[in-house]
Amino acid sequence: MRKLSLRLKHLTQEHRAAMLLATAARDAMPQSDEDLPEFVERIRNIFIQEMEPHFLEEERHALPRLRELGRDDLADRTYQEHMHMRGLIEALHEQPSALLIREFSNAMQRHVNFEEEEVWEVLEDAMEATQQS
């Protein structure tokens, strides 16, 4: 197992929270359409309070570093996925639906897996190379 930098370790811990949010959004689906607006509002509040700051931190620190490393592909995909999830949260707020909740949950899970399996590996490799120089 790789030794994560302090910043990446912090972001990884937040990824665990993101996965819990995604799982809860999918598994705790309300039984009636009447309960959807309240459920969606709870998901939206958690997203705004916890995931939005996380996304902003990645956009301020990880994405510029990826670009410095010549990995615009990873930076672009990360940003596009952030924007997609922001859009899903707003769409859910405007028109709550079980379909959008599932789409949001799946998008969050795919995004976390992408970052953990691809983005973090590139950033850690760069950090290790810098430390060995």
Rank of each mutant, 00 (worst) to 15 (best):
I46T: 12
T12C: 13
D33N: 13
R42P: 00
E41L: 10
A25Y: 05
R7I: 06
P37H: 08
K9R: 09
L8C: 00
A17Q: 11
V40H: 02
Q13H: 15
H15R: 10
M29G: 04
S5Q: 15
S32K: 07
V40K: 01
L6R: 09
R7A: 11
S5W: 09
Q31F: 07
D33H: 08
A22I: 00
Q31M: 10
L11K: 03
F47E: 08
S5I: 09
R26W: 04
S32N: 09
Q13S: 15
L4W: 14
K3E: 13
L4E: 13
L20C: 07
K9E: 12
R16C: 12
L36V: 03
T23S: 14
L36I: 03
E41D: 11
M29A: 10
D27R: 05
I48E: 14
R16N: 14
F39A: 02
A24D: 00
L11D: 03
L6I: 06
F47Y: 15
Q13L: 11
E38G: 14
V40Y: 01
L11A: 05
Q13C: 12
A25P: 04
H15M: 10
A24E: 01
I48F: 07
E14I: 03
R44V: 08
L36E: 05
H15F: 10
L6C: 04
A24Y: 00
E41S: 11
R44L: 05
M29K: 05
R42D: 04
R7N: 13
I48C: 06
R44W: 05
L8V: 01
L36T: 04
D35V: 01
F47I: 08
L8I: 02
I48N: 09
I43D: 05
L11S: 04
D27P: 03
E14D: 08
R44G: 06
E14K: 04
F47P: 09
Q13Y: 08
M19C: 13
S32Y: 03
R42N: 05
D27E: 14
A22K: 01
A28Q: 15
R44T: 09
R44E: 08
E14P: 01
E38P: 03
T12L: 14
E38F: 12
R44S: 11
L4F: 13
H10E: 13
A24L: 02
N45C: 09
A22S: 02
A24C: 03
E41G: 03
F39E: 00
D33W: 04
E14A: 10
F47K: 10
F39I: 02
R26D: 08
L8Q: 01
T12A: 15
I43W: 08
R16A: 13
M19V: 13
D33G: 15
M19H: 13
E41N: 08
K3P: 04
D33K: 07
F39S: 02
Q13G: 15
L11I: 02
A22N: 00
H15C: 13
